[in-house]
Simulated scan of single mutants.
Amino acid sequence: MAETLREVFGEAAVAARVAELGREISAHYAAVGAADGDVVMVGVLKGALPFMADLLRALDFCPTLDFVRVASYGAGTSPGALKFLMDLETDIAGRHVLVVEDIVDTGRSLAYLLGMLQERSPASLKVCSLLDKAYRRVVDVAVDFVGFEAPPVFLVGYGMDVGERLRRLRGVYELVQ
C-alpha cells in the first residue's frame, strides 16, 4: 500500500532536538543529585523505541532501562480501547522515573500509566515525549520534556506507525489520507 507522506519534522531537526532534550534531562537529574542507576528510563513500546534509543545516547548519565506496553490505536488512526499489554521488570520504589513516549495525544493512556507507576512509590516521576498534542487532551497530564508541539494531523515515522508500517522513517511525517 503506497501512502502519501508530507514531512513535518525532518531527520536533522529530530536529531538536533533529541540532543537538546538529552542536555535538558541530564541537567535536571544532575540538579536533583541523581547518579547512574538512580534513574529508570521507561520506554512506552512500541512507538518510543527509536526516540528512547537516541535519547539514551544523548544523556550524560546511564539510566536503568525498562519498558511497558500500552496500546490504544490498534490498526487504525483513531484512538480505541486502552489495553495494558506489558509491565515493568524493574522495582522503581525510591528511584527517579522518566517515562519516554513518542507522542502524547488525548492523555488517556499516559494518565493510566502514570497512575500505575505512582502507586509504586518512585522518588519522582517525569515524562518526556518527542511530540505533544496538548490541544487534544481529554485528561490533564503534564509532559515535562517536549520535543515538538505536534500539528493537528496523523503522524508517522520515527517509531510511530499506522498498522505497524512506517515506523522505520527517520523523520516525522503527516500521513495524508
Rank of each mutant, 00 (worst) to 15 (best):
M160D: 05
S124K: 10
D66T: 12
E119I: 00
V162A: 13
L125S: 10
A123G: 06
G76L: 05
A34L: 07
A93Y: 03
I103W: 02
T106Y: 11
P122R: 12
R57N: 08
F51I: 03
L45H: 02
V104W: 06
V39E: 08
V97N: 12
V143K: 03
G147H: 06
D36T: 09
A150N: 06
S124I: 04
V42P: 03
L166T: 08
V100W: 00
V44H: 01
M86I: 00
F145C: 06
D38Y: 05
Y135E: 15
K83P: 14
G163R: 09
D87M: 01
G107Y: 12
A71L: 15
R136W: 01
D54C: 05
A71R: 14
G159R: 06
V99P: 01
Y29F: 15
D132S: 11
I103R: 11
E149H: 10
L125N: 11
D161V: 09
A142M: 09
G115N: 15
D38T: 06
F67K: 10
A35H: 07
R23L: 13
E149R: 11
G157I: 05
V104T: 13
V156C: 07
Y112E: 08
G94H: 04
L131Y: 10
L49F: 14
G163K: 12
A48L: 04
A58L: 04
V146S: 00
G157P: 13
L117P: 02
D54K: 11
E164G: 02
G80D: 01
Y73D: 06
E149F: 00
F145P: 07
F145K: 07
H28L: 00
F145I: 01
Y135M: 09
F61W: 03
G43S: 14
D91F: 04
A142T: 15
L131K: 08
R23G: 10
P50H: 03
L117I: 02
H96F: 01
V104Q: 09
P79T: 15
D36F: 01
T90V: 13
A53H: 04
L125M: 11
L88G: 09
H28G: 00
K133E: 06
A31R: 13
V153Q: 09
L110N: 13
S121R: 15
A93G: 03
L65E: 07
P50A: 02
A93K: 12
G163P: 13
G47S: 09
L85A: 14
R69Q: 15
V156D: 14
G163W: 07
G74Y: 08
E101L: 07
A53K: 02
T64W: 00
L49Q: 01
L155R: 11
H28C: 03
F84T: 05
F61H: 08
R167A: 00
